[in-house]
């Protein structure tokens, strides 16, 4: 029998401009201080380590936007230019706290905060089944690309 899936509220932060690593680090560190966040995904266009195609294929791709940042004490490398941040939270009050933080943070350009329940996967798809099997950890779904060898970053709660 399948477990009952609890639909937690989700929200998506979309700034008008794509963020640089320093700004993203600042914003994410503000966000992780808010308690009640279950899962978080950073989305944006890929910044590959090597040139993926074209005449220079395979050559190194130095890019100042692909950088190590520290969020909530965990260090990880940004693989994308931060375009949107998707969060799954425990209740709607947390979303309001995130909104208040974003209002304070985005002063140079506007942002949009969308709320709903469909920005991040909550149930396994066939691809997830093939990758994780029948007893997949529901918290891990949709956090990383199933084809990617690197797993999600775990930020410890305080």
């Amino acid at each position: 029998m399948t477990e009952a899936v609890v639909d937690y509220p989700q929200c998506r932060i979309t700034p008008l401009r794509m963020l640089k690593p320093d700004s993203a680090e600042l914003l994410l560190n503000g966000i992780v201080e808010i308690s009640g966040i279950r899962r978080m995904t950073i989305n944006g266009p890929n910044l590959p380590r090597t040139v993926p195609y074209g005449p220079a294929r395979g050559k190194p791709n130095p890019n100042s936007n692909r950088k190590f940042i520290t969020v909530g004490g965990s260090e990880f490398e940004l693989h994308v230019q931060v375009g949107t941040i998707i969060l799954e939270v425990l209740d709607d009050e947390v979303i309001e706290k995130i909104r208040a933080l974003c209002d304070r943070f985005f002063t140079k350009f506007p942002y949009q905060l969308q709320t709903g329940k469909k920005y991040m996967k909550t149930q396994p798809t066939v691809a997830d089944y093939a990758k994780y099997g029948p007893n997949a950890d529901l918290r891990m779904l949709g956090l990383t690309d199933p084809r990617n060898k690197e797993g999600p970053v775990i930020i410890q709660g305080r």
Partner: peptide, 18 residues
Amino acid sequence: HGHSLRLAEDGLMFDMLQ
């Protein structure tokens, strides 16, 4: 890739190869 994406903070169009 980049012509239809939002601009970066510094106003540049996104470029994967910078």
